[in-house]
Simulated assay, not measured.
Amino acid sequence: MSQSPETSVPPHDTNEVHLTGRLSSPPAARVLPSGDQIVTFRLVVRRSARARRRSRQSVDSFECTAWTAALRRRALRLAADDLVEVRGELRARFARGQHGLVGRVTVDLQSLTRAPVASSP
């Protein structure tokens, strides 16, 4: 007897990421050679205090990609320095560069929202 999707145990392998950070520059729309339209932006996220003790680097930067029409529209309404919350999946992407194969990790977006800005007392 099989379990329904609502009661099944989640798979051992998951690919989910949840980040909150600031856009380093305005989002950019482009059309891929396949004809797919995407909007990309770079999200800058502060490292935890524990991670900053191990490294001089205090932030990480992630390229985020919006594939659906709704997410592309939402992304294009953002501006540099906006604080946003993203959820998605990590993707390893490879391309031929001047010095051989170049790899990078990107976030394929599943959701995108402006994060609430804490008010000053």
Rank of each mutant, 00 (worst) to 15 (best):
S2P: 13
Q3H: 07
Q3C: 05
Q3V: 07
Q3I: 01
P5T: 06
T7I: 12
S8L: 04
P10A: 04
H12G: 15
D13C: 06
V17P: 08
H18L: 13
H18D: 10
L19E: 05
L19C: 04
L19T: 02
T20F: 02
G21L: 09
G21T: 11
L23T: 08
L23P: 07
L23G: 01
S24L: 03
S25P: 02
P27S: 02
A28N: 06
A28S: 10
A29M: 05
V31D: 05
S34R: 08
D36K: 14
Q37D: 06
Q37P: 00
I38C: 09
T40H: 00
F41D: 05
F41I: 07
F41M: 09
R42L: 02
R42D: 13
R42E: 12
V45S: 07
V45Q: 03
A51C: 03
R52N: 11
R52G: 03
R52T: 09
R53Q: 15
R56L: 03
Q57N: 14
S58K: 14
V59M: 04
F62C: 06
E63G: 02
E63H: 05
E63F: 00
E63T: 15
C64E: 02
A66V: 04
W67F: 15
T68V: 00
L71Y: 01
R73Q: 07
R74H: 05
A75D: 05
L76Q: 15
L76E: 14
R77I: 00
L78F: 08
A79T: 12
A79Y: 10
A80R: 15
A80G: 11
D81A: 14
D81R: 15
D81L: 10
D82L: 02
D82H: 09
D82Y: 01
D82S: 04
L83M: 03
R87A: 10
G88F: 00
G88M: 00
G88L: 01
E89V: 04
L90W: 09
L90F: 13
R91L: 08
R91N: 06
A92E: 13
A92D: 11
A92I: 13
R93L: 06
F94T: 14
F94E: 15
A95W: 14
G97K: 00
G97N: 00
H99L: 11
L101K: 03
L101R: 09
V102S: 07
V102C: 05
V102L: 13
G103Q: 08
R104V: 04
R104T: 12
V105Y: 10
V107Y: 00
V107K: 00
D108S: 14
D108Y: 01
D108T: 10
L109K: 01
L109H: 03
S111D: 14
T113W: 04
T113R: 12
R114M: 05
R114K: 11
P116N: 08
A118V: 07
S119H: 11
S119I: 03
S119Q: 14
S119R: 15
S120H: 14
S120M: 12
S120I: 06
